[in-house]
């Protein structure tokens, strides 16, 4: 096995030599693009966060100041929004991981056509604009909407339940939006898993739920981690769902940053807020990965981060 692999590697590297290193220069246009657009924009955002803003909502180029950050860190309203954003991200991620795992597991165990339907459904959902995904929940969750008609009509509720314009609607919309990413990340890991291990656990007397919890879940940790990172980093700074499905008390840091850029034109403040949000999200994710590495099953975080 090892020998075959070495031989394969040798053959591949020979093929690469034949193609020639000069062909490697083809990476230059895209590397240049990433440096100019991606690194350039992020670098400028960082620089912008150190510009002094002027009272009329503009900024003074060439200035260096940390006031944007000190003001930000002492602004109890914005820090409250950041805290709320993190809580929202955590709740959405936890729910999406559970639901997404069940879905991915079902797709993995399903045969032929039903598997294609389950995967096709999340792939279609993956492609759809966030605006459409969020908008579709409005007629379903509205006070006179589909769910409330069913609830009141069936006698389960006496009067319409508030599902829209509060945290419930926002969480539903975000779980819905994040689900495909978790499902696909977990599914990709499950397909490389050996079903006979689960059968062995069952032969040894483990119940079905227990065999899944103790054999499948630990091995799916890399997928859960990758999907969880995506879900957390995106739902914490969600923009569309809180605005359409929530109320002002569900505004995230992204909503505030958007307001600074497009309404009050306080760009240095928006830049500082965006950078603070990224730093905090990366720290939380780093902590989560470290915890999984420390206490989770061995060798599961390879390839993640």
């Amino acid at each position: 096995m090892a020998q075959a692999r070495t031989r394969l590697a040798a053959a591949l590297s020979m093929a690469r030599d034949r193609v020639g290193t000069r062909t490697g220069l083809l990476v230059l246009p895209v590397v240049g693009f990433e440096l100019v657009v991606f690194a350039g924009a992020l670098g400028y955002l960082l620089r912008m966060s150190f510009y002094a803003s002027t009272p009329d909502g503009l900024y003074q180029p060439g200035t260096w100041t940390v006031t944007n950050y000190t003001q930000l860190l002492t602004d109890s309203y914005l820090q409250g929004r950041l805290l709320f954003s993190l809580q929202l991200g955590a709740v959405v991620t936890a729910i999406t991981l559970v639901v997404g795992f069940i879905y991915a597991y079902a797709a993995w165990r399903a045969s032929g056509r039903f598997r294609a339907v389950l995967l096709g459904a999340v792939l279609v959902e993956l492609l759809i604009s966030i605006v459409i995904k969020v908008y579709a929940w409005v007629p379903l969750l509205a006070p006179n909407g589909t769910f409330n008609s069913l609830l009141v009509g069936s006698g389960l509720a006496e009067s319409p339940v508030a599902l829209l314009g509060n945290g419930v609607g926002v969480v539903i919309g975000l779980v819905y939006s994040m689900l495909p990413y978790v499902v696909l990340a977990v599914y990709a890991v499950l397909t490389s898993l050996d079903w006979s291990h689960v059968e062995a656990a069952r032969d040894l007397g483990a119940s079905r739920p227990r065999s899944v919890l103790e054999v499948v879940v630990p091995q799916a940790v890399p997928g859960l981690l990758a999907g969880g990172i995506t879900a957390f980093s995106w739902s914490t700074v969600a923009f569309a769902a809180p605005s359409i499905l929530g109320s002002p008390s569900e505004r995230t840091v992204a909503s505030e940053a958007g307001r600074f850029v497009n309404t009050t034109f306080d760009w240095p403040r928006a830049a500082a807020l965006g950078i603070e949000a990224v730093v905090v999200v990366v720290l939380v994710i780093g902590l989560a990965v470290a915890l999984v590495r420390r206490f989770g099953p061995a060798d599961t975080t390879e390839g993640v981060l």
């Binding site: 657009v37 350039g40 924009a41 992020l42 400028y44 955002l45 912008m48 990172i229 995506t230 980093s233 995106w234 914490t236 700074v237 923009f239 992204a254 940053a257 958007g258 850029v261 760009w267 928006a270 830049a271 965006g274 950078i275 949000a277 990224v278 999200v281």
Partner: peptide, 15 residues
Amino acid sequence: PTPLIVLALALSVYF
């Protein structure tokens, strides 16, 4: 993996 809002903010001020 970069949050879209950060890309949107950065590209917005940069462009």
